[in-house]
Design a protein around this nucleic acid. Structure first.
Length: 811
DNA sequence: CTCCCTCGAGTTCT
DNA sequence: CTCGAGGGAG
C-alpha cells in the first residue's frame, strides 16, 4: 500500500471505530459484535504503531491510555468553574410543606429580580461525581481539566480521553472553532460494584463509594489504569462557544450537546418546568426515582432556562444567581458514642471528639465526629453511652445531629428530673478536662471565647508536633514526605524538638526512627523487612532532599510557617510586602504592626508577643542557621504614610487617646522623640482636654511606656531613612485604588498586571465589591465582570489600563 | 456601636 | 466546608 492508501485506511478505521464506540457507549445500542470492534481496533493500533505519523489527537486508540505522567500540570480556567449556591435549609427527610415553602420563596425572589412571571426552569439531577471541563478546538478534544479551586484545575486530558462516552471529535461537518463543555465524570453503580468485586479478588482495598472510585480512577497518573475503569460522563453546561450559535436556553444547550455526540441525562430527568409547583413536583419525582437511577445523585439543580434571563440575574460573589442546587436531606444513621476524647490543636485548642461505633453513612464509614467545643457538647448534651444521630454535614464532615434521649441507658423518669442522684453520677454530663490530656498543663478558657486552650505552649508534645506539621505544610515550607505519623514519632523519640532540628536530621536518624516506629506498631520482624529497608532508605533520602530544598523560602511562607497565632497566609504576605525583612519584623513593636493594613490590635499584639518570647527567639535563631528567606528587601516605600506620628500614637493604646486626639497631639509636637522626652508640666501646655493630658502623662510616667515610645520613635526614623530614596510618587490615578483582574489579558499575565498596578500604588483584590474602583477585564471574563456591571464599577481593558499607567510618565 | 467581609483555624476520610 | 473572630467602614 502507498502512504496515501495507509492514511486513508487509518482514517476509515478511525471513523468506523468512533461510530461503533458512540453506538455502544452513548446510545447503548451496538450495531456490531464486540469481536469485530476489537479486530478493527487492533488493526488501527498496528497501523499507528508502524507509522507514528498517522496518529491523530482524536484517534480511538488514545482510549487505552498512554505513558504515566510525572504529575498533573495546572490549567487556569478561562471561564471560572463556579460552585452552586444552596438556598435550602437542611431538613428532615419528609418535611414536604417546608420544602414547598422554600421553593415558593426561591421562585418569588427570581420573579422579583426579573419582574416577569411565570419563570421557566431547566432542571437536572445533581450528579455525585467530579466536575470536568472539556475544551474542543475545531471539533477535536484538546484539553480536559478538573474543577480544582474553580480558578485553576489539573490537566487530566490523557485520562479523560480513555472515557469512551466522551467524544474525541464532534459529530459536525463544520465544528465550532472553540467549544468548552462542562459536565460530570462519574462511575455508574453497576460499574462500581464490578470494580469493587475485582478489587477484592485482587486483594486490593475496595472503594467506599462510586464517587471515590471515580475520583481515584481519574486522578491516576497512569492513564492506562484509568482506561481499565469504566467511567461515565454527562454533560450539563456550555462555558464557551466560538464560531457557532450559542443556544438561547439551557434546554437548547442540552439538546445541542446531545446532537454533538455528548452523553446527556435522559430527557425525562431534565424537564423544563414552570414556577415553584413545577420545581416541587420535579424534586419529589427525582427523590422517588433516586434509588433506581444507574448513578448516584445528591440532589437536583434548577437553572433559569432563558439565557437572556440568566444574564440579567448575573452572579453573586462566587455563585450564579440563576442556578441553584437543591440537595436531598443528608443521609442519617444511628450509632453509639463509645467515648468522648479531646484533641489538642496547633494553637492548643482543646476539641472534644466523639469516638463512635463505626457506622456507614453518606458513602463512608464514620468513626469520629467533632463536637467543636464544650458549649456544643452541653447544648446537644452528648454523653458517653448515648445513641446519637450522625450525618455527613456539607457532604464531608461528620456531625452529631442530636442524642436519642429515649435510648440513653438510664431512661429518665416520666415527668420528673432527668436523673436521680446515683444515675447522674453514672452517666454524667460532659465536662471539659481542667488539664491538657497530652501534657497536663492547665486548660484555659478566655472570657467570652468558645474555645478552651492548653496553656502548655510548645512544651506540650501535641502542640510541638503540630507546629512542626504546620511548618512543613505545602503552603508553608513545603517539605514533601514529612507526614503526621513520622513527625509524631520524631518528636516522641526526641529526634526533633523544634523546627530547626529538622535540618539536622541525618539518614541514620530517619532510618532508626522508622525502624522503631515500625517495631512499635507491627509485631516483630517480617520477611518483608529487608525489602522494606530499601524502600525506607529511598524515602529517607527523598525527605532529606525535600528538607534541604526548603532552605530558601519566600519570606511570607517562612512567616506563615512559624505558626504565629492570628497570622495566616494573607497576614504573612502583608508583613513580608511592607516590612521586607525578618530582622526588621522581629524588632517591630505592636503599634507599628497595627499601622499596617488589615492588622489590628489583636494580631499586632500576637506578633509582638511571639517575637518577644525568649523560647521563640531562640528557636528562630536556631532555624536561621539553616534557613534564609530568599526575597528580603527594603521596607515598602508606601510605609512612609503608615508611619505618620498620628497613626502610631493612635495604635499605642494610650488611655483616652482616640484617633482624633492623636492627630491633634501629633500636630502640636515635632515628633515622637520629643514626646518621649516631655515632662508633665510641658504636656500641660498642649491644646488638649485636661483628662487626655493627664492620661497621657500617667502613661508616660510608666518607665516601660516611655522607653517603648522612645524605641518606636528611633525605629521609625531608621525605617524612614532606609526607604528607597528614588521612589516615584504614587500615581494619582492608582494610589489607594482597588483593582480586580478578570479574564485573560491579551499581552500581560495576571502576575504582570498585578505587579504594574501595585507598583503604581494600587491594590489588587480577588473579588468585586462596592469598594472596587476598577475591574480590568480580558477575554472570557466571567462572573467578576458581570458583578462589576451590576455594581456600576468602571471596567477597563488592557489598553485602557496601559493608557492610565502611561499618564505617570507625562506628569 | 453595628454590620459586613475576609481571614484563620479546625476537621474527616480515602 | 463551616464557624468564629478580627478588621474596617458606615
Amino acid at each position: 500500500m502507498t502512504t496515501n492508501d495507509l492514511a486513508a485506511r487509518a482514517h476509515a478505521l478511525r471513523q468506523q471505530l468512533t461510530r461503533y464506540g458512540h453506538e455502544y457507549y452513548v446510545l447503548d445500542a451496538p450495531s456490531v459484535p464486540d469481536a469485530e470492534y476489537d479486530r478493527l481496533f487492533r488493526e488501527l493500533q498496528a497501523l499507528e504503531n508502524a507509522h507514528p505519523e498517522l496518529k491523530t489527537a482524536d484517534s480511538p486508540t488514545l482510549r487505552v491510555g498512554g505513558m504515566p505522567l510525572p504529575e498533573f500540570s495546572q490549567i487556569t480556567h478561562s471561564v471560572p468553574m463556579l460552585s452552586l449556591g444552596n438556598a435550602f435549609s437542611d431538613m428532615q427527610q419528609d418535611d414536604f410543606s417546608q420544602r414547598h415553602a422554600e421553593l415558593v420563596q426561591f421562585d418569588e425572589r427570581i420573579r422579583r429580580e426579573l419582574a416577569e412571571a411565570p419563570i421557566r426552569y431547566a432542571t437536572e439531577p445533581k450528579f455525585d461525581g467530579l466536575a470536568i471541563s472539556l475544551l474542543y478546538r475545531a471539533g477535536v478534544l484538546v484539553q480536559a481539566a478538573t474543577r480544582g479551586d474553580g480558578i485553576s484545575g489539573e490537566n487530566v486530558t490523557e485520562n479523560i480521553r480513555t472515557i469512551h462516552a466522551i467524544p474525541l471529535k464532534l459529530e459536525l461537518a463544520q465544528p465550532p472553532a472553540l467549544l468548552e463543555v462542562r459536565g460530570e465524570v462519574l462511575m455508574l453503580k453497576r460499574d462500581f460494584e464490578r470494580l469493587n468485586a475485582e478489587q477484592l479478588q485482587r486483594g486490593d482495598k475496595p472503594f467506599a463509594n462510586p464517587r471515590n472510585a471515580a475520583a481515584g480512577s481519574l486522578r491516576q497518573l497512569d492513564s492506562r489504569i484509568t482506561a481499565q475503569r469504566r467511567l461515565s460522563f454527562y454533560a450539563y453546561a456550555i462555558a464557551q462557544v466560538e464560531g457557532a450559535d450559542w443556544p438561547l436556553s439551557h434546554a437548547g444547550e442540552m439538546d445541542w450537546l446531545q446532537q454533538l455526540g455528548f452523553p446527556v441525562v435522559e430527557a425525562s430527568l431534565r424537564p423544563v418546568v414552570t414556577g415553584a409547583d413545577g420545581l416541587a413536583d420535579y424534586y419529589e419525582s427525582v427523590l422517588q426515582r433516586r434509588a433506581a437511577l444507574p448513578f448516584e445523585i445528591d440532589g437536583v439543580v434548577y437553572k433559569v432556562n432563558s439565557r437572556a434571563q440568566q444574564e440579567e440575574l448575573g452572579f453573586v460573589s462566587r455563585a450564579p444567581r440563576w442556578a441553584i442546587a437543591h440537595k436531598f436531606p443528608a443521609e442519617e444513621a444511628l450509632t453509639l458514642v463509645e467515648a468522648i476524647e479531646e484533641q489538642v490543636g496547633r494553637t492548643g485548642a482543646i476539641t472534644p471528639v466523639a469516638r463512635l461505633q463505626p457506622v456507614f453513612v453518606g458513602g463512608v464509614t464514620v468513626t469520629n465526629a467533632t463536637l467543636h467545643n464544650e458549649d456544643e457538647v452541653l447544648r446537644k448534651d452528648v454523653r458517653v453511652g448515648d445513641t446519637v444521630i450522625v450525618r455527613r454535614a456539607g457532604d464531608v464532615i461528620p456531625e452529631v445531629v442530636s442524642v436519642v434521649l429515649e435510648r440513653r441507658p438510664m431512661r429518665p423518669a416520666a415527668g420528673g428530673d432527668l436523673f436521680s442522684q446515683g444515675e447522674e453520677a453514672q452517666y454524667p454530663a460532659y465536662r471539659l478536662p481542667s488539664h491538657c490530656p497530652v501534657c497536663g498543663s492547665h486548660v484555659v478558657r478566655e472570657e467570652g471565647e468558645a474555645i478552651a486552650r492548653c496553656s502548655g505552649g510548645l512544651s506540650c508534645k501535641a502542640q510541638r508536633s503540630q507546629a512542626i506539621q504546620h511548618f512543613a505544610g505545602r503552603r508553608m515550607m513545603d517539605i514533601d514526605g514529612l507526614g503526621e505519623r513520622y513527625i509524631d514519632k520524631l518528636v516522641e523519640y526526641g529526634y526533633v524538638h523544634g523546627v530547626a532540628d529538622l535540618y539536622r536530621l541525618t539518614l541514620d536518624d530517619l532510618l532508626e526512627m522508622k525502624r522503631r516506629a515500625d517495631e512499635d506498631e507491627d509485631e516483630g520482624i517480617t520477611p518483608e523487612t529487608v525489602k522494606a529497608g530499601k524502600v525506607a532508605s529511598k524515602w529517607a533520602e527523598n525527605l532529606l532532599q525535600a528538607i534541604a530544598a526548603s532552605s530558601q523560602p519566600p519570606l511570607a511562607r517562612l512567616l506563615f510557617a512559624l505558626g504565629i497565632r492570628h497570622v495566616g497566609e494573607s497576614t504573612a504576605k502583608t508583613l513580608a510586602d511592607w516590612l521586607g525583612a525578618l530582622a526588621l519584623i522581629r524588632r517591630t513593636p505592636a503599634a507599628l504592626f497595627a499601622a499596617l493594613p488589615d492588622i489590628g490590635g489583636v494580631v499586632a499584639q500576637s506578633l509582638a508577643d511571639f517575637f518577644a518570647e525568649e523560647n521563640n527567639e531562640a528557636a528562630l535563631d536556631a532555624l536561621l542557621h539553616y534557613v534564609a528567606p530568599a526575597d528580603e528587601h527594603a521596607p515598602s516605600a508606601k510605609l512612609a504614610e503608615r508611619l505618620e506620628p498620628a497613626v502610631l500614637l493612635a495604635r499605642l493604646n494610650i488611655p483616652r487617646l482616640t484617633e482624633v486626639r492623636s492627630q491633634q497631639l501629633a500636630a502640636q509636637i515635632s515628633g515622637l522623640e520629643q514626646l518621649a522626652r516631655m515632662e508633665r508640666r510641658q504636656l500641660l501646655l498642649l491644646q488638649l482636654p485636661a483628662e487626655v493630658i493627664n492620661a497621657l502623662a500617667d502613661w508616660l510616667d510608666e518607665a516601660a511606656n516611655r522607653s517603648a515610645l522612645q524605641q518606636l520613635a528611633e525605629l521609625r526614623t531608621e525605617i524612614l531613612n532606609s526607604l528607597p530614596q528614588d521612589t516615584v510618587a504614587a500615581h494619582p490615578l492608582f494610589d489607594g485604588k482597588t483593582f480586580v483582574l478578570t479574564g485573560t489579558l491579551p499581552t500581560l499575565s495576571r502576575d504582570q498586571a498585578k505587579a504594574l498596578i501595585e507598583a503604581a500604588g494600587g491594590k489588587v483584590a480577588g473579588s468585586v465589591s462596592k469598594k472596587t474602583h476598577f475591574v480590568v477585564a480580558g477575554a472570557d471574563a466571567g462572573s467578576k465582570l458581570a458583578k462589576a456591571q451590576e455594581l456600576g464599577v468602571a471596567v477597563l481593558d488592557e489598553a485602557a489600563l496601559q493608557a492610565m499607567l502611561q499618564q505617570t510618565a507625562g506628569e
